[in-house]
Design a protein around this nucleic acid. Structure first.
Length: 479
RNA sequence: UCCUCCCUAGCUCAGUUGGUUAGAGCAUCUGACUGUUAAUCAGAGGGUCGCUGGUUCAAGUCCAGCGGGGGGAGCCA
């Protein structure tokens, strides 16, 4: 067997002192022709490997360059140096894979995130991205664990769908036609009947409608998978391919929905605070260093770990859209005309600057806004008795804005159909969805949470392209 | 898609009112040193100044178009 190695995480944390062990990893730095900082991805920390002077061939030492892969067998001893507790005194050293130092783009120095984004296939080899993707794994695991503990069923909603009815955004078309020469009708239009699915299809923009179908049979379900939007959004908060978590609960109202969302966010953040402390500490330090470049008033008030602990330890602020409008309308910022979009009347959609004011200036904590005007929300949200608002809720987080969007769903068939007609949604095509309201409809609610937005919040990173391994965005599908 | 800033060595950046042979730090290479921690010291190599066109005696520098990137906005998760 080739892989008889000990992971560096275990070497550093375990009880292996004075034992002979074999490690494998990649060279981060090689100092003094003696000291190798070796990293194998199991932890943010490197293992110091010591090559005794004169014991190894000059030809081997020359091949130990930044990025090279090594297999080292030696004795783990207490370190003679100050930077680490233990070090591996090498007996055998083997280069598994060479790395030409003149060509390897990563150097033992700081690199900009913009540069690393252009070499996304190699950025896993850096401390920052190692930490990010270990945290991403932990978050995904914690999400499944949370829902599993609560008795939710993990639903695999389809990637390819024929419905674009939710209106969540522009879709990517799916076809097996030769785009240069599609089958056409006599009038020149494309003949979708001859296409693979016999009708126009697209990549999913949301699994919610399918989750509702399942929830009205299985009770509580959640989806966790990729979604695709062909929006021409060029921002640090949008991707064309991103992952969403969408729980859906039967026999539940808006308050149940809010409670679930808040408990969920606190649970998964607590999980990584307990399980990814080293990586979080590294990212926290990175963030603090980065913010030293910024003017005082743009720096965060809390350090990353503090912020995460604050979120797990404090209740989210809950208020209605109407209350939020009043706060904004009467705010000093609004009166001094500091907002680019002044808040003058009920019914306006909240802009980024308004959300940021509420979360970062007024409440200084996550905020749940409920009961939005029906005109600015989706057709499936349940209408409140006032006739003006719907039972929607958005959770706004410091630094990133909307992180969760959810609602109690309209379970009354007549009300739902009426609303669909008002909003020009093809009722006939949605019969499969409406059947849930025809046969044993019940109050139900759910929400959608953007996984990468959650990653931004948790890691303190500011560009969404840095928290997904291979980002997809307009004019870019590298790797 | 809109606004705005940027694109000079492998990376991060200087480059004066347009003017001789385009610089620095880090990285890389060579040598020295050898318990280092982003090692240190000495030396060397490394450039289509994003691309295309224009103005000019002369363009890294000015103008236009295109491409790429950052920040902000819209759409949203």
């Amino acid at each position: 067997m080739f892989n008889k190695r000990v992971r560096i995480k275990e070497v550093l944390e375990g009880d292996l002192l004075n034992r002979e062990i074999t490690v494998m990893g990649w060279v981060r730095t090689f100092r003094n022709n003696q000291f190798i900082a070796l990293n194998d991805g199991s932890t943010n920390s490197n293992l110091q490997v010591v090559l005794e002077l004169g014991k190894f061939d000059e030809s081997l030492l020359k091949r130990i360059t930044t990025g090279a892969a090594l297999k080292i067998t030696g004795i783990l001893v207490a370190s003679l140096g100050k930077g680490q507790k233990v070090e591996l005194k090498a007996q055998k050293a083997e280069v598994l894979g060479d790395s030409d130092a003149e060509k390897f783009p990563l150097q033992p120095k700081k690199h900009s995130l913009e540069f690393l984004r252009e070499i996304a296939h190699l950025r896993f080899r850096t401390n920052t991205f190692g930490a990010i993707f270990r945290i991403r794994h932990s978050l995904a695991f914690a999400i499944h664990q949370f829902f599993n503990q609560k008795g939710f069923v993990y639903l695999h909603s389809p990637i390819i769908t024929a419905s674009d009815a939710e209106g969540a955004g522009e879709t990517f078309h799916v076809t097996s036609f030769d785009l240069e020469n599609p089958t056409k009708n006599e009038d020149g239009s494309i003949n979708y009947k001859e296409d693979f699915f016999g009708k126009p299809t697209n990549l999913t923009v949301s699994g919610q409608l399918e989750a509702e179908l399942a929830a009205l049979a299985l009770g509580d379900v959640y989806t966790f998978g990729p979604t695709f939007r062909a929006e021409n959004s060029n921002t640090a908060r949008h991707l064309a391919e991103f992952w969403m978590i969408e729980p859906e609960m039967a026999f539940s109202d808006l308050e149940d929905d809010m409670n679930l969302a808040e408990e969920f966010i606190k649970y998964i953040i607590k999980y990584i605070l307990e399980n990814n402390r080293e990586d979080l500490d590294f990212l926290a330090t990175r963030l603090t260093e980065e913010e030293k470049q910024k003017p005082q008033n743009e720096r965060s008030e809390m350090r990353l770990i503090e912020k995460l602990e604050f979120v797990t330890n404090n209740d989210f602020e809950r208020l209605t859209y109407t209350e939020a409008i009043e706060i904004l309308k009467n705010s000093a910022a609004n009166k001094k005309k500091k907002f680019q979009y002044p808040v003058d009347k009920w019914g306006i959609d909240l802009q980024s600057e308004h959300e940021r004011y509420l979360v970062e200036k007024h409440f200084k904590k996550p905020v749940i806004l409920i009961n939005y005007p029906k005109e600015i929300k989706a057709f499936y949200m349940r209408q409140n008795d006032d006739g003006k608002t719907v039972a929607a809720m958005d959770i706004l987080a410091p630094g990133i804005g909307e992180i969760v969007g959810g609602s109690q769903r309209e379970e009354r068939l007549d009300v739902l159909e009426k609303r669909m007609r008002e909003m020009n949604i093809p009722v006939e095509e949605m019969n499969w969805y409406l059947d849930t309201r025809r046969f044993g409809t019940v109050p139900h609610a759910g929400f959608g949470l953007g996984f990468e937005r959650l990653m931004l919040f948790v890691t303190g990173m500011t560009n969404i392209r840095d928290v997904i391994p291979f980002p997809r965005f307009p004019k870019n599908a590298e790797f």
